[in-house]
Design a binder for these strands. Structure first.
Lengths: 246, 246
DNA sequence: CTACTTCTGTTACGTGGTGTTACATTGGCA
DNA sequence: TGCCAATGTAACACCACGTAACAGAAGTAG
């Protein structure tokens, strides 16, 4: 399950801190920035799900930032501004914002709007809240996530290693959603050692792991390519999955 | 790009008419409804891109309509209401609305929000991975967009690369409509990396890609020139296409 | 403790997809 | 016809990815 990543852009550090704390408390991952340049670098190097953008940014003009982001990027943007007149709102929308919130705002209302936008963009992902389900059924397989065993219908069976189980669970929890190597790596390294989420994202461990899992899945069946590669990004599970609690 | 279809739900016929005229004037296709039942039937039988939903619907409760639509459907919903207090807004968002507009509203502002939502959903729709495998039938080919395989009637078969698949899908989605290199490039670069829609419209990548796709299409068949060049503009697919889901 | 097995990260190499470049070809227009 | 811009395309280079092989780490039995 992926935590929504939000970039908050404001040059009032009080508002910035308040928003950050508030959002983090509500289970978002938050980056902050206060200049146009920072925004660009962060957006270029991170996967951001939503940008909260203050229009009044010192020298930089929020509308222009919004427009230039729109040219290159499809990240949803919610504009925040002290300017609440209709023509300001319209300028916000026309420069590419997905929503426009006037300051001062009710934080709970802002949260509701944030969630509406995130929900919209991740609607297909909204099914992926992690359940404590132990059994998955996909294609020809029956997967017991606890023992790490895979049973094929014809009685053939495969045993997966711990990391292979984790990987398969991540994929099964997010069918049809491309996962980056970083996402996979962070979850895996988190499972390995909850406190040390260090990088093992450098090397090609994920690739190798995916390869191993693939070969096990395809060992018996002539399974179609269940795990697909998304070039430049990562991997997707492209199978309908049904989970069953017992 | 297709014309956005909007369903306006209100039981005040004056507002309904006004909105309808106003939206149609701005290049939307508009359905109207004033009861929950009408909404259901229209949504069930039409492709609707956005619903404008008044909360106060005689007997029917707009919030409930919104929630039940949400269960079955992912159509974006903008709520309209005379209730402008924050807790009403939040109720709207939490029942699944994508936006909430208080009456009386500035029609131009509403239009801006409508466009923002449509823009957002079209964006994510074009980026989201489709669950259904689409099969296209055109000329002698049968095209499985998911596996990237093309099957000719005589059993001959070709495998397309990912970008070739994307290109073909774009063309198939817009038969007889000349597409500029920029249009093609923007879609392709979006599919490449949903978050990094950088320009790769500079060079002649599109030309080369079209060439490669052409050669694959013509490899077996003496297919007529399916992809035609529009000099000074771009390319057109000049074939009637039928799509079939399964 | 040691010996053995299994797991997992790294390295290195092969392969294929994709953008660029350079040159050939075509089409339009004077 | 001759010129020029637009397009077709072969060849090249690069980079992402698959994967075999190796080695260290972690576990297990004795």
């Amino acid at each position: 399950m992926t935590i929504p990543r939000i970039l908050v852009v404001d040059d009032d550090s009080d508002v910035l801190d308040m928003l950050k704390q508030y959002l983090v408390k509500n289970a978002f991952a938050v980056h902050t920035a206060s200049t146009a340049r920072e925004v660009e670098t962060i957006v270029a190097h991170n996967r951001i799900d939503l940008i909260l953008l203050d229009v009044m940014l010192g020298d930089d003009n929020g509308f222009e930032i919004c427009q230039s982001l729109r040219k290159e990027n499809s990240v949803p943007i919610i504009m925040m501004s002290a300017l609440s007149a209709d023509h300001h709102r319209m300028k916000g929308y026309s420069s590419g914002a997905d929503d426009y919130v006037a300051k001062p705002f009710n934080p709970d209302l802002l949260l509701a709007r944030v969630q509406a936008v995130v929900r919209r963009t991740q609607r297909s992902a909204s099914l992926s809240y992690r359940r404590e389900t132990k059994h998955y059924r996909f294609v020809e397989w029956n997967f017991d996530a606890q023992s790490g065993q895979l049973f094929a219908k014809d009685g053939f069976e495969v045993v997966l290693s711990r990391l292979e189980v984790s990987l398969l669970k991540i994929l099964l929890a997010n069918p049809f959603i491309p996962l980056t190597r970083e996402e996979i790596a962070s979850v895996l390294s988190g499972e390995r050692d909850p406190l040390n989420t260090s990088e093992f994202t450098e090397g090609r461990a994920v690739d190798v792991l995916v390869g191993r899992l693939r070969s096990k899945l395809e060992e018996n069946q002539k399974n179609p390519a269940i795990i697909k590669t998304v070039r430049g990004t990562g991997y997707v599970l492209s199978v309908e999955v049904s989970t069953s609690d017992e």
